[in-house]
Nucleic acid binder design. Sequence first.
DNA 1: TGTATTTTTGTTGTCGACATTAAATATTCG
DNA 2: CGAATATTTAATGTCGACAACAAAAATACA
Lengths: 240, 240
Amino acid sequence: MSLEQPVPADHPETKRKRGQGVGAVYDTLKREILNLTLQPGSAIDEVKLAERFGISRTPVREAMVKLAGEGLVVTLPNRFTIVAPIDFPNLPQFFDALSLMYRVTTRLAAANRTEDQLAAIRELQNGYTQAVEARDVLAMIEVNRNFHAEIAKAGKNRYYAELFERLLDEGRRLLRLYYSSYNDKLPRIYLQEHEDMLAAIERQDIEAADRIAQAHAEQIVKQIQASITRDHRLNANISL
Amino acid sequence: MSLEQPVPADHPETKRKRGQGVGAVYDTLKREILNLTLQPGSAIDEVKLAERFGISRTPVREAMVKLAGEGLVVTLPNRFTIVAPIDFPNLPQFFDALSLMYRVTTRLAAANRTEDQLAAIRELQNGYTQAVEARDVLAMIEVNRNFHAEIAKAGKNRYYAELFERLLDEGRRLLRLYYSSYNDKLPRIYLQEHEDMLAAIERQDIEAADRIAQAHAEQIVKQIQASITRDHRLNANISL
DNA sequence: TGTATTTTTGTTGTCGACATTAAATATTCG
DNA sequence: CGAATATTTAATGTCGACAACAAAAATACA
């Protein structure tokens, strides 16, 4: 089940400056993992990657170590490195942590946001609106992530922001998995919830921000869970 | 201000098996950073490390990348890697996140602990008692960290557990900084609080666990803040 | 024919060497 | 003598090569 076209070649002839190879591999791999361009569980070939980027294996390996540190890939010693599988049995814990981070970061944003940060968040909300109108699911998922990441940044707690970004990234894979086709209803609900969230942050209403964030989290969790249940039923039918 | 004797040589002649070099460097560096054996902000020499462990620079660098991913070191491109400085202006956010993780992990532990995990936690509490009796500050700090990390593990949420461990580690440096000499009063307070916490987890009293964890967090935060204030006053006097 | 052992194959983990970079030092010129 | 420039120095980031390792394939043996 390939969700995307074959990966365009990254012009290995493009001369990269010294010290940028690791970052290039890291960024590209991360994007491809979160977009499900690289299938969870699939093996990653160091040599091919090195050839693709026109560099040696050393910087490729360093990029792998970074990705492994964030749990995006898993290294099997002396064998290979695989794209981190999606850990379905772990989803309840994931949702729990995600919900808490939604709440905490939105609360803090309401308390600590500056005008500039408010504007940055609003800018992303505009981008989300455009993505909905363009029916561009990919863009919606990405902008949604950045919207909440920006709120976390405005909350000014890097520990929460970091964990939240990790959770949002992991969530991107789940959303990508279940919302590959456009569905009209959901995005509009989220749109309104984002609007309310933004308003609460603007008027620095911490308790309202908390309530809205909690509701928003529940909404999303419910949707993903429903999608998974639906998916399981489909699979069950196939095996009949 | 050296807090420890010169580092004992790690027997470079000790033949390590292939694939263990990175781990050895990582573990050793991590311990030395958290013990303040390596001073925050001090430079780390890749070549010397390679010589010390009797390996080449490649695995040393991979260990650095891992440490950098956890925020324990900071890499200055094309220059050197330094031990992560202690970010004092960031302490309020640190305390906020630490307190929340104390609460969340203790709550979850009360809800989800198995008998085995309960036993493991109690075992660590015994170790803490011994460290207090032996007036061994170093051991107290380390066992304290492991005690709470074990509680987090019993809570069965790896996202919380991971963040919490990172915070506890960072906390170790602060404690090490301010409690290098033994003070009789504090450890006994913590001892009692740990006892209460363990009891709440045992009888699966979630609300009590939460309350105790919150109080425990406040206690610790207050102590560290007081130490820092005291320290600042000392410094202020010096500059008079 | 099925199982145990050896050989082959592909990939990893590590090494020593080298070019690139930025600071430190020496040199030039006003 | 002092500031700007050139040179040296020291450490990094990267490379190509090689040996160790684990799976797969081939072979031997019961």
